[in-house]
Structure formats: C-alpha cells, structure tokens
Design a binder for these strands. Structure first.
Lengths: 231, 231
DNA sequence: GAGTGGTCTAGACCACGGC
DNA sequence: CCGTGGTCTAGACCACTCC
C-alpha cells in the first residue's frame, strides 16, 4: 500500500485520534483503541500506528501503559519542558533568558492576581509565608516553589501556569543551588523580596509588586552569575 | 532481544543522537546516520529506530527528507506551536489566555529593548512604522506582524522570541480576522497604539510604553470578544 | 542505479496487568 | 490465560534524490 498522496500515514493516524476526541468519544483518562485494533480499523501496519502514537506521546497527549493500553492524558506541560530543555541543550537559549521569561510571566501573573485574589487564596498565602519565614536550609526550596506556584495560580491563566511550570522545571536545579549555596549570605534579601511581593499583592500595590518581582529576578540573576564565575 | 532493563529502546536512540551532538559530531544542518546504519550501529530494529526519530522529529530537532536522509535542524519553535495548538484544541486554554501571555512577553521585550536598541534597529523600526501608516486593508496584517516581531528581536532574548512566535502563530488567524473585520472601525486606535509604543521605545519611556502595550492587548481582547458574540 | 526514507507483511517472543 | 504494549525478524516495494 505504497501511499504518497500528500500526508505521511502517521499524521493520518494522529488526525483520527484527534477526531475521536473532537466527537467526545474519548476524553482525558480514557483509553484509545489498542494498536492492533487501530491497525484493522484504519488499515495501516502496526509500525505506522506506533510511529504516530510516539508523536502523540511526545506531545503529552497519550501515555502508553504496558499490559493495559494507550490512554489519553494531559501531560503537555512535560512536553513543553522537554522542548525547553532541548533548547538549552542545543545552546539555543540559556538560564538567563529563561529567567527573563519567567519574570515576564510572573509579572503578568501578579497583575492578573490583583483582581482575582480572594479569601481562600489569602489564607493559603499566609500559610506559605509562615513556612517561608521559618524555613531551614532544606525547606527553602519547597517554600520558594510553593510561593511562586501559588502566585501563578492566582492569575487564573492556565497557559501562564503551564509555561511557568515548564520553565521552572528546566532550571530547578540551578534555583536549588542558588538557594543552597551561593546565596547563603543573601537569605535576608530573599525573604524580604518575597514578603514585599506578598504584601503588595494583599495591598493591591501594582507598582510595588512589579518592583519586588523585578528585584527577585535580579537576585536570581546575581546568583547565576556568581555560580558561573565560581563553578 | 526482549529488552526491559528500564528504558524504552527509543529513548536510548535519542540519547545516542544527543551524544553525537554533544561531541560535536553533528550540528544544525548536518546529516545523522541513515536508519539502516543506526540499526547496525546500535543493534536495534528499524522499527525502534524510526519510533525514536519520530519523537526527535516532533521535538523539532530533525527533519526527514525522503531520498536524502535525516537532518539535524532547529525547528523547535514549530514544536512549541504544535503543543500550544493542541492545548487549545483540547480546550486546556483559549485565545484570551494566549493573549495574556503574549502581553507578558511583549512587555518584557519592551523593557529589555529599551537598553539594547541601536541605530540599526531604530532605522528598521522607522521603516516599519511608515509601512504601517500607509498600510491598506491587505498589508495591515503584515505590518502588524513586522512591528511586533521587530520589538521582540530588540529584546535580544531568543527564548522570548521563540515563544512569542509560537503563540502568535497559534492565534494568527484570529488576529487577521480582528484586523480585517471587527476592528475596521478601530483602525485609528490600532495605529495610535503602535505609534505610542514606537515613540516610547525611542524616548526610553518605560511607563508609557508598558501602558501602550497594555492598551494594545486590551484592544485585541475587545476584538476577540466582539467576534465571539458575533460569530 | 544506488542510497534513503515511508510503508507494509506476517509473523514472533517478552513483560506486564487484570481476570 | 488473554489482551496489550515493546520489540524484533527478514525481508519487501514505492518514491524520491543524487550522480
């Protein structure tokens, strides 16, 4: 069946799966037809079916579970992560650039959060701040992560959250290093900046908050720089 | 050869290709070993090799050219694009969210551009503004695209540029529609906002520029909204 | 014509999950 | 035990590119 037409077979398979989704025949968590079944239904070889599934898998849309089947999932965040990682691996970007994008996103999240934050979020934030203030050497990383994640969540923008998570994942080792080592002496400043962001958020102080976020990322850039010259 | 160990074979193939890159044995534009060659070198079947190549292809790292071979390329932007498109297809995000992220990125780009813009960029911008002012029905889309692309380029941040392009690609049809139809009556405002961004960039007016960018995206949101109620 | 990717055949065995 | 994914065998033909 030496097709040529225009499309590669595996794209047709992808379209078929997308169609199933569009017609609401499967949703997240649902199981897509088995490979041998797709083979018969679509009339393609198992090879081509599997090549298509590999692409969908890498898009974060399906997960292959041996012995069970292929399931529709929502792991597109990890897919983003793998692309960003590859960008850095190929030296098409670097951590400084990643941090600039993170600052852009966090500033926007802060801006959006101002109009959306409610009592539940305030309460959760208070908790996180308490943990942050009493955080020891080990738990700083966690507290920092919680803080920023919470801020993004308050924006109510899922795309913002997804991209931010992927970018943070990419540089999470560097962040941990900065928090652990190079910036040991700057812990006061670290805490101070987060408190400022927090208070500005509560007070509805847009300008102050954006300033604090800028300061926060300058603080990280400084840490990256010191690590670069040292390491 | 029923492997199990831990990793799926196609991940091993991917690692092998990455290793070739790391050792500078191939770079962008270079040709990776043929499938039949990889088969022998690595001792895997052609199926598995090809599954791995599909993943790399979808990451935007290789391009398969029939009759020639598989080449290392840099198309990770398109890969990002496909993921963002899928997110919208799966209703995990929408155009309003995309626009909020675009605003975040453009604001950051403006901020960075202030410190980097030189004579060459000013000159290029002047050209674009002239085209924009005399743009007719057809060429508005192009002028708009050039303007924003130029602004991002001035930021000097490749990641910012890549993400912005991917996001703009995702909603390019909507943008074109807004420019063509719904906002016909708002063309003056459209031009005015771009001029303000331009002048603030030249004048180093940070606050004014960010305001204009905000206005620009509010203008788009309004267009999206009107289309939503009309269409 | 030789090399390469795109695809198929018609099977096969392994490992895993669930009944 | 059966269905499923993961992988392999040992080929094959087509379409394309380059020489």
């Amino acid at each position: 069946m030496g097709k040529k037409e225009e499309q590669k077979v595996y794209y047709l398979v992808i379209d078929y799966i997308k169609q199933l989704v569009k017609e609401n025949k499967i949703g997240f968590g649902g199981k897509i037809p088995s490979e041998r079944e797709l083979m018969e239904t679509l009339g393609y070889s198992r090879n081509s079916i599997r090549e298509a599934l590999r692409t969908l898998e890498h898009m974060g849309l399906i997960e292959s579970r041996q012995g069970k089947g292929n399931y529709l999932v929502n792991q597109m965040g990890e897919s983003l992560n793998s692309i960003f990682s590859m960008l850095i691996f190929m030296k098409e970007s670097d951590y400084l650039e990643v941090n600039q994008v993170r600052r852009a996103i966090e500033s926007q999240a802060f801006y959006l959060a101002l109009d959306r934050i409610g009592e539940a979020e305030r309460s959760r934030f208070r908790e996180i701040m308490e943990n942050m203030e009493k955080a020891d050497h080990q738990s700083k990383v966690q507290a920092d992560h919680d803080f920023h994640q919470m801020l993004i969540q308050c924006s109510g923008n899922r795309l913002l959250e997804l991209v931010m998570q992927a970018l943070s994942q990419v540089c999470k080792d560097e962040i941990a290093l900065i928090l652990d080592n190079a910036a040991q002496k700057y812990t006061d400043r670290w805490l101070e900046l987060h408190e400022k962001i927090y208070h500005c958020l509560l007070a509805g102080d847009r300008t102050g908050g954006l300033e604090a976020i800028l300061g926060h990322y300058q603080w990280i850039d400084q840490g990256l720089e010191e690590m670069g010259t040292v390491g």
